Amino acid sequence: MAPQHRRPARGAPGATGGLHARRRLPRRHPRRAAAALLPPPGAARRAVAAQVRAGGQHPTERGRPRVSQTIEAVIFDLDGVLVDSEPLHWRASHRLFAPHKLTMEEYEPFVGLAIEPYMAWAREHFGLEASVEELTQRYSEAVTAEIEAGPIPPLDGARELIAAARARGLHVGLCSQSIADWVYPTLRAAGLDGSFDAVVTGDDVERAKPEPDIYLHAARLLGVAPAACVAVEDSPAGVRSAADAGMVVVQSRQASSAAEPQSGAHLVVGSLRDVDLDRLPEPSAASFARPEGPR
């Protein structure tokens, strides 16, 4: 996930819903038909209770995929999780700092952080005359140009995992440290706009990742307790942010900028297709150890 910036609040909540079909009884002698179809009330209750105790589903839940009862929402990071946008930020950095040469070892510690520390480091490291504010603006414009040159395809399994969360009746959110001027064009370029109940960007909080503020704000918008949320992250800063918010954290290492496995993640996967929403760690069993920080 790329270094980012904060601006005045902006969000994009949405919602989805569904209808439940009613079962029709035969028209002829409806009361008699109902009595023939249903077992005695006491026997029915005992049968359902025995089925649930044995690990089965309640009849009203048949046909609906199962998920941990403690999980109510899945919140995705954007850059490095749903799209592999890091090469885009890398190209923008090279254009901005030319003719100076930026190495990957120098760049990686700033992945997932705010823009200003990155620009302050570059100004001192390369001896640039422009102020941090001027460099921040130029970097923002360079990244925007890269996004608009799109398309930016979603990573394999991104659409499917979002759909799987929807099928389980979970809230779906997006929590990106990127500025809104990058987030919404990126979602459009990836064909993912309109996929989320709430969108939180770096513009919406004062303290950037690795502070937990952005994930706590997303949980509030979704109306879900942080402990009932699963966060899908990629960067050390993002993993720490979600873990310190009290969420179950899945670290995806699918993008080209994949970080080393973080100690704050409760599950580390090589692909979004490896995320099984029916077999997630329970929040009560999760260990929210603080990760070591950026590589």
Score class of each variant (00 low, 15 high):
4 Q>F: 13
6 R>F: 04
10 R>Q: 10
11 G>Q: 05
11 G>D: 05
14 G>W: 06
19 L>D: 09
23 R>P: 09
37 L>T: 07
41 P>M: 13
43 A>Y: 01
46 R>Y: 03
67 V>G: 13
68 S>P: 05
69 Q>S: 12
77 D>Y: 12
79 D>W: 06
82 L>C: 12
87 P>A: 06
92 A>Q: 00
93 S>M: 05
94 H>L: 13
95 R>T: 12
96 L>W: 00
100 H>W: 13
102 L>K: 08
103 T>D: 12
104 M>S: 11
111 V>L: 09
113 L>D: 00
118 Y>E: 05
118 Y>C: 08
118 Y>K: 09
120 A>T: 15
132 V>Q: 09
135 L>A: 01
143 V>A: 01
146 E>R: 10
148 E>H: 15
154 P>Y: 07
157 G>T: 12
159 R>V: 13
159 R>T: 04
167 A>K: 11
167 A>L: 10
173 G>A: 02
175 C>S: 14
184 Y>S: 00
190 A>S: 15
195 S>N: 01
202 G>Y: 00
206 E>Y: 06
218 A>I: 10
219 A>K: 03
220 R>K: 12
225 A>S: 07
229 C>H: 03
232 V>E: 06
235 S>M: 05
237 A>W: 01
241 S>A: 15
247 M>D: 01
251 Q>R: 04
259 A>Q: 02
268 V>F: 08
269 V>H: 10
277 L>H: 06
279 R>H: 14
279 R>S: 13
281 P>I: 09
284 S>G: 04
284 S>E: 12
288 F>S: 07
291 P>T: 05
292 E>D: 11
293 G>D: 12
294 P>T: 07
